[in-house]
Nucleic acid binder design. Structure first.
Lengths: 354, 354
DNA sequence: TTGAAAGCGCTAACAA
DNA sequence: TTGTTAGCGCTTTCAA
């Protein structure tokens, strides 16, 4: 006799159901109780939910109705033990207080929800080594991983990931799938615009030295400057924070650059604040350009010229790639690139003609 | 013979283990493989991880070592089916792009992590009715719920929560546990400070009409004003957003108030921006006070006088209460109140004497 | 289209 | 302190 047989018998009985060791919850609604109420077998109820096509339409309707009446909710854990899939993906972010990340989190959650996935968010609180530890802890708890611009060392990352399907956002590591926001065209276009307005000397405020994104953006700006024949003051690296931006603002004033590309919007806000503190006008005396287009970029005064990241597409592309990686683990890692778009606002304008 | 017996036999055999229907993953490391490698029973391995005190020290060490070597990771889903506990809590936020929430999310995650809980973050994207739906979907997936300043209707909330243990943050609903940030003392103290500096007419920029927090803060400010004998211009309600703040800024200029309490920092930033746009100086012509002390409050120019919320304590108190609610479901709901603290910055000062 | 039965990996009574 | 065993709620063969 199978284990289930005994259970069925008990369920049919009158006495209180022994919920097993250590449990004393209210009797839960399971496929068995629904099955009994419908006069069908538990397998049919199971199928009604997970393989609806395999069940007679009218029977299915009946099951769905009574299940709803009884308040049945499939037990995800049980399903997970049976199928080997948890239906969850881990989303690891380096620092949830970075205002770009909530936008990305929302995008990922939305896309994941459409594919009926839950998202386990994990915040490394700005500590790169924590990233790999947290990933290790996610092993066995999720079906796959999305790592948003991870800062951890590639070797540590690989080790932590093991053979969990994984997609990177805004970072490339050989052998792993990734979704990249390419800001080169947008930054070049903003650069050209600055040039047209009369900026012939431009500064670059570099982000952290170990940041993949910072390196990308720096390369882009340097490339544009040399192509455009613009003198570039290469400042940094700075910490990618508001205070880092203030330091950069101070450094900027030691140069003759009339415009500046900051690593991201947060730093650009720091630059704006420092310039304001010192009575330097924007865009009159200096034009300031950010990157990402976080909510704050519209809120500061003057509002920030920046590059809008395609957050929603980044999120859904990441989920999409992860989906494939999970379904076909042996397919080579796919990489996708999405362009940012320029957003010209108040912080850029023609330089004051002295 | 129990189900396990058959499995053990198979494991001991040579042929490839049938991973069950639909599965073709690499053979996973389970307590059984570890047990076999150690020459102990699977229960001992299980205990070594979940009840270490019940296992002989030396045996335990051996198990832990070989488990680590083999790369064993406990399967949370299996544990969950067996114990009826998922080890996860759901954290529902009304709108993750509200800059106060990432701080709270981090606090909750940190506290939860210490209690060995994972956090399933769910974002209602600003839609109050979505909140209850999302909560319903969490049923059977989490052991408990933390609802951060939920906006949904109490009846809908109750229905969605059912008998899931639940703790509210910054909202009170009869019968549910809650953790509240009480800003009344801090706001009154800031108010007194304004008064001392010579502000005798003050405006209140109210948040959304259906917001519990907005109602609390409004009541507090009104109470302070009447006690202090200050004329209060009661503006609003406004949308709790940057643009709502701008609208409020415009409305503020129709009054003679020299200082303003905004519902929260985001709105205060909107007020600042609108005043700046119109060439009104802060704090010279108007003083502006926010609430929450989000990161942005330090970043704007002038920096924002506000009330600092005890984010970390809110998070750990919520987790703590949830812990109790889960362990003792029949204990009455506990409520805890934590005070905010005043943060005087640049946006408040003596009114210009014309 | 359905049901019986075995099994997912783990826990926890119970007995030894 | 350890092993035996039944069971958690679900999925999925296999046979009917």
């Amino acid at each position: 006799m199978g284990t289930r047989g005994a259970y069925d018998v008990r369920l049919a009985g009158q006495g209180p159901v022994d919920q097993g060791p250590g449990r004393s919850r209210v009797r839960r609604v399971t496929i068995y109780s629904v099955a009994q109420a419908c006069g069908v077998s538990s397998s049919t109820v199971s199928r009604a939910f997970s393989r609806p096509d395999l069940v007679n339409e009218s029977v299915r309707q009946r099951i769905l109705t009574t299940a709803a009446e009884m308040g049945y909710r499939p037990n995800r854990s049980a399903r997970a033990t049976a199928t080997g899939r948890t239906g969850m993906i881990g989303l690891v972010v380096p620092d949830i207080t970075n205002p770009f990340l909530p936008l990305l989190v929302r995008a990922v959650q939305r896309a994941a929800g459409l594919a009926d996935w839950s998202v386990l968010l994990v915040d490394a609180e700005g500590d790169p080594t924590a990233e790999s530890q947290l990933i290790t802890q996610l092993q066995g708890q999720v079906d796959g991983l999305i790592l948003a611009s991870p800062r951890a060392h590639p070797v540590a990352l690989r080790e932590a990931i093991r053979d969990l399907p994984c997609v990177l956002i805004n970072r490339e590591i050989a052998g792993l799938a990734s979704v990249i926001c390419d800001n080169s065209a947008a930054l070049a276009s903003i650069g050209d615009h600055l040039l047209e307005m009369g900026h012939h000397r431009v500064a670059l405020v570099g982000g952290p030295a170990d940041s993949w994104v910072a390196a990308q953006r720096a390369t882009t700006v340097r490339g544009w400057a040399s192509r455009a024949g613009v003198i570039l003051d290469d400042l940094g690296p700075f910490e990618a924070s508001f205070d880092g931006g203030r330091a950069a603002g101070a450094a900027l004033l030691t140069t003759d650059a009339t415009a500046v590309f900051a690593f991201d919007d947060v730093m650009a806000c720091g630059v704006l604040a420092e310039l304001a503190r010192r009575g330097v006008t924007v865009p009159g005396e200096r034009s300031v350009v950010g990157c990402d287009d976080v909510l704050m970029a519209r809120m500061v005064t003057p509002s920030l010229t920046t590059v809008t990241a395609p957050t929603d597409q980044l999120g859904s592309a990441a989920v999409d790639l992860l989906d494939r990686t999970i379904d076909e683990p042996r397919a080579g890692p796919e990489n996708r690139t999405l362009p940012g778009t320029p957003a010209l606002r108040e912080s850029s304008g023609p330089p004051a003609t002295p």
